[in-house]
Amino acid sequence: MAQKQYTVTGMSCEHCAASIREEVSEVSGVREVEVDVAGKAVTVHGTGLDDERLRAAIAEAGYGVVDPVAA
């Protein structure tokens, strides 16, 4: 299973985390989404993960994305 991790800007509470989880979970191939509000990190596990679609899903939830962190 592949993994991608992102630093997310504008995230400050569990509501933010839930919004991100909901949007990212809808991307094809995503199996699990971990959100660390304090660390401003989103980790996505799955197969065939598409970086552009994951970034778009985070943006759709209303948050900014910094370049992926090496996993």
Rank of each mutant, 00 (worst) to 15 (best):
E26S: 13
A61V: 02
R31F: 05
T7D: 07
Q5S: 15
E60T: 10
R55A: 14
A17L: 03
D50F: 02
E14H: 11
D36V: 11
D50T: 05
A17M: 06
Q3T: 15
S25P: 11
V42E: 04
Y6G: 09
V44C: 11
G10I: 07
V33E: 09
K4V: 15
A18V: 06
H45F: 12
V44M: 10
V66G: 08
E60P: 00
V33W: 05
E52L: 06
I20E: 01
D51T: 15
E22I: 04
G48S: 11
D51Y: 08
V65E: 03
V69D: 00
V69H: 02
D51W: 07
C13N: 10
V69N: 01
V65N: 02
V8L: 10
A57R: 06
V44H: 07
D50V: 10
H45S: 12
S25L: 08
P68Y: 06
G29I: 10
V37G: 10
A38V: 13
A61Y: 01
A2Q: 15
V30H: 08
Q5N: 11
V27F: 13
T47E: 15
A41R: 11
L49S: 12
V30N: 06
R55T: 14
Q3V: 15
T9Q: 13
E23M: 15
E52Q: 11
S28W: 07
H15D: 10
Y63P: 01
R53P: 00
E32C: 02
G62P: 05
A70C: 00
A59Y: 00
S28R: 14
T47S: 14
T43K: 10
H15K: 08
R31Y: 08
V66R: 13
S19H: 07
V65L: 03
Q3S: 13
E23A: 15
G64F: 01
Y63M: 00
G62E: 01
E32H: 12
A56M: 03
T9R: 07
T43L: 02
V66I: 07
E52V: 09
T9D: 13
K4R: 15
D67P: 14
C16L: 04
D36W: 04
A38S: 15
E14Y: 03
S12W: 05
H15A: 13
A70F: 02
V69Y: 00
D50S: 12
V30K: 02
D67K: 10
G64R: 00
C16P: 06
G62I: 05
H45M: 09
V69R: 03
V37L: 09
H45E: 12
G62V: 05
E34M: 12
A18H: 12
H15R: 09
L54G: 08
A70H: 07
A18G: 12
M1C: 07
G29Y: 05
G39V: 01
V66H: 03
G64L: 03
V35S: 01
G48V: 04
E23F: 09
T43G: 01
T47K: 11
T43P: 03
S12I: 07
Q5C: 12
S28I: 10
K40T: 05
H45A: 09
